[in-house]
Every structure is written in C-alpha cells, then in structure tokens.
Amino acid sequence: MSATAPPPSADAPPRRGATARRTAPSPRVWGLPLLLAAVLGGLYLYVGSQDLDRIERRSLNAEYLLSRTVQHLTLSVVVVVLILAVAIPLGILLTRPRARRFAGPVLAVANIGQATPTLGLIVLFAVVFVAWDVRTIVIVAVWLYGILPVLRNTMVGLDQVDRSMIEAARGMGMTPLRVMLSVELPLAVPVMLSGIRTALVITVGTVALATFVGAGGLGDVISNGIASSRDTVLLTGSVLVAVLALAVDWLAGLVEDLLRPRGA
C-alpha cells in the first residue's frame, strides 16, 4: 500500500508514431491535377490543329464553351447548396433520440429513390411538370438524387461517435447543443465529408444530363457532337465533363484531408 507516484512509464509507453500524420503532399496528390492539365492541353492542341467546319465551330469556340461551363457550375453549385442545406440538418435531426424512430423509414425511401435512374428522374419531372422552368426541373431532380449520400453519411458519422464520450461531455455540464457542435459534429466530419464528396461528383456528373431537357451545361457539347456526328465536338464535350468531375473529386479529397480533425 505504498503511495508514491510511479514514473509515467509505469503505463505502456506512448505511441509516438501517430504524431507525424500530416506530411508534405505526396507526388500522388499532385499527379491527378497534372494529368488533367496535360489532358486539357492536349485537347486544346488537337482541336487547334483541326480544320473546323461551320457546325464544329458553332460548339468549339471559347464563348460557347465558357457559357456552358458557367451554366454547368451554376446548376451544380445550386444543387449542392440545396443538398447540404437539407441533408445535414435532416441527418442531425434523425439521429436525435426523439426522432430516431423515423430514421429507418426515411433511409428506406431514400434507398429506393437511389435505384431510380437519374436520366429517368429528370425526364419524368420534365414530362410531368411541363410548365416548370427546365433548370428548376434539373435542379430538383439532381438535388433529390444527391441527398441520400450526404444524409446517410451524416447519420452514420454521428451514430459512430462513441456514446460514452457524449455522456462524458454531458456529465461535465455541456449543453446538448454544445455537445453537438464541439464533440459530435467534429468527430462525424470525416464520414460526412466523404458523403459530401460523393454527392459533389454525382451532382457534377448528373448535371451533364441537363442537356436532355434543354437546361444547358457542358452536356450540350456532347449532345451537339452526337447529333452532328462530329467526333471533335463529342471528344471536347466528353473530356471537359470528365475533367471537371475528376477535378471536383480531387479538390474535395484535398478538403477532406484538411478538415479531418487531428488525433481522431
């Protein structure tokens, strides 16, 4: 029953390896943007070397491509903002004890919705709500489609936070709101971010289908290429959409790494 303080080493030594986690970006991180830049450069040189006919020139000029890119990005941003504005609060709400019983049914409905083909959803909205603005149709359809990944990951992320930790926080006198903001959400961030990243990529890709209902975006360039059988136009449209999606995914991945809480 001697009561002297033992040296700290009485417990196992601290695991030091975990400290040096954030290292300089590896070449792998920069590989993709370099590749994408090279692809874009190659495309520019290729298109520039071609003798473009009148039809091709109608799609392949800076003004047209820029306007479609801006349309594409605008639609995507509006959709993503709507997704986040609904899915994150809904996910938080559905993980609160009082609303938890609705979580199962909501996820079941969302899962069935996910089996709906995106093109089908956009067209269905277009033929049912004929009076709607085509951009509204695209925004609503793509928004509905992108809610699930963010909603599900918000719920999973919050649910995997250790209950005992929340109780410890409550036991120390943190208010439920404070526990939510400074314990639960920070710890759910990695899972939530990966859901948001998925939703971003899905959104940017699905907005390419806006062209089918005449709502613009870079999908127009692909459609022009198919309709006019001009491979140069088709290639340009496809490459631009692909590069945009990959770039968004890469950026989101970067943000994901940056926002991940340290130590967790």
Binding site: G171, V183, L187, G263
Partner: peptide, 29 residues
Amino acid sequence: DRLRRGIGYAIQQTGLFPHRTVAENIATV
C-alpha cells in the same frame, strides 16, 4: 448543465475527446 459543471465525472471508457489534445480535454469544464 450548471449542476454538472460543479461535479467532476470520470468513467471507465474515459470519454476523452479524440479530436482534442490532452490539454484541451482537461480544459473542457
């Protein structure tokens, strides 16, 4: 909440916040 801020609480699972440093954890209350 006010009551609990005046009562220390330690549990088996420790309930330490993994995203906060040791010092930040201790500084909570």
